[in-house]
Design a protein around this nucleic acid. Sequence first.
RNA 1: GGGGACGUAGUGAAGUGGUCUAACACGUCUGCCUGUCACGCAGAAGAUCGCGGGUUCAAGUCCCGUCGUCCCCGCCA
Length: 595
Amino acid sequence: MLENMTGLKRTHYCGEVDETILGQEVVIMGWVQHRRDHGGLVFIDLRDRTGLLQTVFNPQEDEATHLKSHDVRSEFVLALRGTVRRRPEDMVNPNLKTGQVEVFIRELRVLNRAQTPPFQVEDHADVNENVRLKYRYLDLRRPKVLNNFILRHQVASLTRNYFADKGFLEVETPVLTKSTPEGARDYLVPSRVNQGQFYALPQSPQLFKQLLMVAGLDRYCQIVKCFRDEDLRADRQPEFTQVDLEMSFVEQDDVIEMLEGYIRLLFKDIMNLELPPHFPRLTYDQSMRRYGNDRPDLRYDLEIVELSDVLAHSEAKVFAESLARGGCIRGICAPGAASFSRKQLDDLVAFAISVGAKGLAWIKITDEGWQGPLAKFLTDEEKAAVAKTLAAKIGDVIFFGADTVEVVASVLGQIRSRVAQELGLVQEGQFRLVWVTDFPMFEYDAEGKRWAAVHHPFTSPRDEDLDILESDPGRVRAKAYDLVLNGNEIGGGSIRIHRPDVQAKVFKALGIDEEEAQLKFGFLLDALGYGAPPHGGCAFGLDRIVMLLAGAPSLRDVIAFPKTQKATCPLTDAPGTVDLRQLMELGLRLDIKKS
RNA sequence: GGGGACGUAGUGAAGUGGUCUAACACGUCUGCCUGUCACGCAGAAGAUCGCGGGUUCAAGUCCCGUCGUCCCCGCCA
């Protein structure tokens, strides 16, 4: 019943058939999108990667072929031979790229049949994501899904071209490498020939690209898979792809300039958008103060404003107490938010609590005065001062955060983005890029009671802060920079340490003694001792960039075979158990606690 | 580790303790149809309401547990 292709060679993709080849005989191959049987005439829409094409089976032209078309069903794989004709004028389909023409079929071969698909292979079909992922090969047949991967290909291709043009060499770094206990959890791979020992899958090729700089390769770039065994989010997958690069004999601005050129090219070629030659910059401190995080969404204002001075003597208990404990009071003025319902405000308070606040004070400014739980505790002078500081007017709502500096920043930062969404301040198609610079070198890890690297331990401190590396590590700033797009960190990098003495000092500040440093990173320290050039680089999240350019809500939409939130794959059912024999070969025995 | 939402034919989804013997739409199957294109018309099949336990005269509906999916916090150098 099935036929082969022998003697037929595809002449055109479906999407290529148009008015320029009227009258020509074409051979097309693809999947049945839809069959419309009018008893006499039969229409079959054939689909391939390039689009849809209407084919016509007319019993008067070819009775046998027409008869054959009756047994065809959705998603059958066909080879069709026929003649391209212009459609009658009132039969043109403007929704189809090929809607001006149709192909009258004289030969039909069923290359393969298909079971009824679990969901309709159409853009408008609304399907549960788990079902889509289980049948991802069907999901990927849908044009909207496919388009994300065409876009992804374009981004990857432009990336390679751009960096190749700029003299970067593409070098592959190992996937089986050494576990580095700093940072994220590693995915481990047991070694059979070295029992009891493990490789780690790289969280990034960081150390290898630095070694390539020591080697004198000067400029390196790689589109590379990285792995982190941490809990997932919509914008976080356990394996993801980085555009990883490194340059020698550069300082921060050299790297930034190179990357600005790259991002400008992406937006120009893919989005047809002209970005400014330089992107705005914020220091980490500015960003934390004004936006509550280190990845500010600049598509809207709603800045966080310091109110500690203005409310220094406030009667309100929450304000007085947090100031007394060394915390702060900050506020956001949400223009026009007085239209929020009581439920909306209650939901915001609940949201604030869910992200770590003890509560969220708000005040509505109406023509009848200030309304809200805290309004009566504020004097007229305080109201005036608050209104002036926030430029608040009638119709606005002010949200107050009073707690430690960290909690206030984090909570108001999240309130800021939620309020912006609810007020409709986020416009589709806007792209706001910003560099965040001058990150702190270290942050105090209260749990481990030690200083930890904010970026990674190979990041160079700023020259002027070298002196306080030991005395005041919390104040040391790093030569590190993140690129933020619409509130998403899409890339980050730094100038690295190239001097062994500085690297040793940083390890010391991190509480890593010489022996431990030698054990974990000895090969890097050795390399730095053999003439490492000043160098720095960056890594971009390719998946995230594609996600944002595609306007997709999740990384899963731009990864061909992504994992679920529990890091499983509905298609392959990975991860899975293995045979006892496989474990024995590796010298492993399971010891799983049942809870 | 924690908070929240969801789970009903192949798919989407209605349902708020009592004709639920489970609506509707798409898909599937059968028949009819020569200009449709998310074709149309007539008919049919298809659901132990995620799983387990409980409350109740009565559970898709309420409660507890469990599994799965999603969103968020922690975590992600």
